[in-house]
Amino acid sequence: MLHLDITGEFVAFFLLSVVMITGAVLTISLTKVVHMVVSLAAVFLGLAGMFVLLQAEFVAFVQVLIYTGAISILMIFGIMMTEHRAEGTDPVKPLHETLAAVAALSLFGLLFFAIRASDFPEPAPFPFGEDQTLEIGKLLYTGYLIPFELLSVLLTVAFIGAIALARKEAG
């Protein structure tokens, strides 16, 4: 059974999850694509709040910078460069939609019962509350140095590739 002890974390979690789920549902169900981006940005901000709640402040700020800042703007550019008056209304295919809904709901049921059934060990106290950015930097430059450098190569390749793809061809 659920046992509810109303703590500050629980209240914050509840509010943020309401924001996130509402944003996600609106992202799927709104008709104008630009409105969808705004509700998606609400989801990203709510997730940043969740990260603060989980004592991941550095990741929270990266989330705000990259997701709510960069990716939302990129998506807005994508909309403007394609069909900016696009309505999300499509010819409805009831069978396809029902099958997709059944698939998503059954996946959720599976995950939900798996989460409910598993019993997690009592967590040890989280020791990285202070100087977290320092610790993350140390980890990135020692244990995860090679993935980190590979990631920079990946980013360079991806952005040069994006420029080459989206450039107007001469003539």
Partner: peptide
């Protein structure tokens, strides 16, 4: 899990590639 399933449903149903 809720967020993932909403995203999965959208990816399967939506016809607009941006969405």
């Amino acid at each position: 899990a809720i967020l993932f399933c909403i995203g999965l449903y959208g990816a399967l149903v939506k016809r607009n590639a941006v969405v």
